[in-house]
C-alpha cells in the first residue's frame, strides 16, 4: 500500500490553548478520509499543518515520503489544498487565477491545458471563467477553490469543507468528482455533513478537543450507534400501546422507545442488546399477535448519534458499546 500522508504525534499549541493534541494517523493512496468534529475541534488546524502552512509545536508530518518541515516547497508541490472558506484573490478571474496557480506550480504547457480544461469542465466553471471572483456566488467561489486544488493532479488532496455553500446538485457533483479521483490519490476532507461521510469516505476520523476519538470505516462507526440494528416500526396510534407491550416482551429487545408521531402514525424503535440482530424475533412476535404494521425497517445506525456521543461532554471515550443513553439533544453543530 502506498502511504502518502503520515502524521505522528502532532501537537499544536496557541499560547495556553492546545488546539491539536498528539494526533497520529496516516492516509494511503486510494483512501478518502473524512475528518469530522465540532467547530473548534482542531480539524482545520491539523489540515493547515499537513499542508505546511502552520508549523506544529511538536510531531512529524510526512507527505509522499518527505518531511513537511524539511522540504516545505517539495511537499506543497505534491499537495492540492482548499483552505477553509476557500479564500481566493477576488480581483482575479477564475481563468487568471488558474493560470497563476499553474505558473507557480510550473506546469508544462500540455499539463496546464489539460489540468485547467478538466478542472473547469468537472466543476462547471465555463460560464464564469472571465468574471472577477469577488462577484461570484459562494458556490462558484468554492468550486474555483476546488479547481485550483486539482489542476496539477496532486497525489494528496486536502479539502477543508469542500461542499460548504454548494446546493444539493453541486454537492452531488463534487462527491462524484472525489469518487473519480479517489483511486489515484490520498484525499482528506473535513465536513460537517455526516451523510457526506457515508457517501464518499472510505474512512472517518472524529476529532474532539484536539484528539482523535474514533478512526474507523463509516459502517463501523454506525455500528457504534445505539440505533445499530434497532428496528423501527410505524403503526396506527390505536395499536401503538399493544405493539409496545409485545415488543417489551421479546427477550432480545432491550428497550422500546416511542420516537415521534407524525403523519398520523406512531413510530416505535426497538433497541437490541449490544447491537444484536432482532428483526426476526420482532417480526414473528408481531405475526403471532396478528398485529399489522404500516412500515418496519432495520436501522444501520446513525452517524449523528455516534458523533454526538463522541464529541459532547468532553471525555473522549473509546469503548464501543458505551454509546447508549444520550437522548435527543441539541445538535453540536449544524451545517
Amino acid at each position: 500500500m502506498d502511504r502518502l500522508l503520515e502524521i505522528n504525534g502532532l501537537t499544536k499549541k496557541f499560547g495556553p490553548i492546545t488546539a491539536v493534541d498528539n494526533i497520529s494517523f496516516s492516509v494511503d493512496r486510494g483512501e478518502v478520509l473524512g475528518f469530522l468534529g465540532p467547530n473548534g475541534a482542531g480539524k482545520s488546524t491539523t489540515m493547515k499543518m499537513a499542508t505546511g502552512y502552520l508549523s506544529p509545536t511538536s510531531g512529524n508530518i510526512t507527505v509522499c515520503g518527505s518531511d513537511v518541515r524539511r522540504n516545505p516547497i517539495e511537499i506543497k508541490r505534491r499537495i492540492g489544498y482548499l483552505p477553509e472558506g476557500a479564500p481566493l484573490y477576488g480581483d482575479m478571474t477564475p481563468h487568471s487565477l488558474l493560470n497563476f496557480v499553474s505558473d507557480v506550480r510550473k506546469l508544462s504547457r500540455e499539463d496546464r491545458r489539460r489540468g485547467i480544461e478538466q478542472a473547469v469542465e468537472s466543476l462547471h466553471l465555463e460560464r464564469v471563467l472571465h468574471q472577477p471572483i469577488e462577484t461570484l456566488s459562494k458556490g462558484y467561489k468554492r468550486r474555483v477553490g476546488l479547481a485550483q486544488a486539482i489542476i496539477h493532479d496532486p497525489d494528496v488532496l486536502v479539502l477543508d469543507e469542500p461542499t460548504d455553500g454548494l446546493d444539493p446538485n453541486q454537492k452531488h457533483e463534487v462527491r462524484e468528482l472525489l469518487d473519480r479521483m479517489s483511486s489515484t490519490k490520498a484525499i482528506i476532507i473535513s465536513t460537517h455533513i455526516l451523510e457526506e461521510v457515508d457517501a464518499v469516505c472510505s474512512r472517518a476520523i472524529i476529532i474532539s478537543q484536539g484528539r482523535i476519538v474514533a478512526d474507523q470505516m463509516p459502517s463501523q462507526l454506525e455500528e457504534r450507534s445505539r440505533f445499530h440494528n434497532a428496528v423501527g416500526i410505524r403503526i396506527t396510534p390505536d395499536n401503538a400501546e399493544k405493539c409496545m407491550s409485545i415488543l417489551h416482551d421479546i427477550s432480545e429487545v432491550r428497550s422500546v422507545e416511542q420516537v415521534i408521531q407524525s403523519s398520523g402514525l406512531s413510530e416505535l424503535v426497538a433497541f437490541p442488546h449490544n447491537g444484536g440482530d432482532i428483526i426476526g424475533p420482532v417480526r414473528s412476535a408481531l405475526d403471532q399477535n396478528g398485529l399489522m404494521v404500516d412500515e418496519m425497517f432495520v436501522e444501520k445506525g446513525r452517524l449523528e448519534d455516534v458523533f454526538r456521543n463522541l464529541t459532547i461532554g468532553g471525555a473522549p471515550n473509546e469503548s464501543g458499546d458505551d454509546t447508549g443513553g444520550v437522548g435527543v439533544q441539541e445538535v453540536a453543530n449544524h451545517a
Binding site: 499542508t51 502552512y53 516547497i73 506543497k76 479564500p87 496557480v101 506550480r105
Partner: peptide, 14 residues
C-alpha cells in the same frame, strides 16, 4: 484579512 495568505503560502513558493 481575506485569508488568501493561506492560499498563497501553501503554494510551492518560499
Amino acid at each position: 484579512k481575506s485569508g488568501t495568505m493561506e492560499f498563497l503560502m501553501t503554494l510551492p513558493i518560499s
